[in-house]
Amino acid sequence: MEKDDVLTFAGREFRSRLIVGTGKYPDYRSMQRAHEASGAQIVTVAVRRVNLDRTRESLLDYIDTAKYTLLPNTAGCYTADEAITTALLAREVGLSDLIKLEVIGDQRTLFPDNEDLLKATKVLVKEGFVVLPYTNDDPVMAKKLEEAGAAAVMPLGAPIGSGLGIRNPYNIKIILEMVRVPVIVDAGVGTASDAAIAMELGCDGVLMNTGIAGAKDPVAMAEAMRHAVIAGRLAYLAGRIPKKLYATASSPVEGMIE
């Protein structure tokens, strides 16, 4: 791959186009090894109350912040106000203005509440945040988020943790045509081919958590995802052949043995 093919948003450059999560791993040690195997440079983390009884280890002992950029998220927030407060707290913890903005609208599907998402995006952009909103695969919404100042848009491939893959590749394709900011598929990736499809469509990156953490062997799946994202990106840059209904012979028809 070309050396200068990097994921860029808000003036930051990343060689890896895979963003990974920290939830649902069997333990922190396997999470750490999966992060290494994934080749990711950005790791998303939740923002929660400190555990006062100190029986559990700290996540931050298992993420080398000199090596990984932390991307705090507002997972679990159901209103714009909750998400804004969570983002402000995240900035105090990490002293970074990056935020993966989630405003959930429904508990069963974890689909975003786009109305509050847009509201929170506007407020946080004004507060100086680099906002990466998790949204539906809705091109009009993606456009509105871009206009509101989002640094990238993160449409879902399928519901969070569902592993259903890229359910509407045509919408993702339209989003890619409609916005200029990076498009990072967030949620739905179940296996390597799903990640490759997202990248082949021309997406700038893929974020996944459950697809790796929930696999029987998270470290092996992390490595598979690393290859899938690279392969998908290369295939996109290489330019695939058009699909045709009938065969086209790849060997010459002249000189056949009679």
């Binding site: 983390v45 929660r48 400190v50 913890v93 969070i160």
Partner: peptide, 28 residues
């Protein structure tokens, strides 16, 4: 409360304190 103000900020009975950090979790 900003980090640099922790040492000067005196607490009073009944205050509600939230101590927040990064934890495992997030969508995808």
């Amino acid at each position: 409360i900003k980090r640099e103000r922790y040492a000067q900020t005196t607490l009073h009975a009944g205050d509600r304190l939230e101590i927040i950090t990064f934890m495992a979790g997030g969508s995808g």
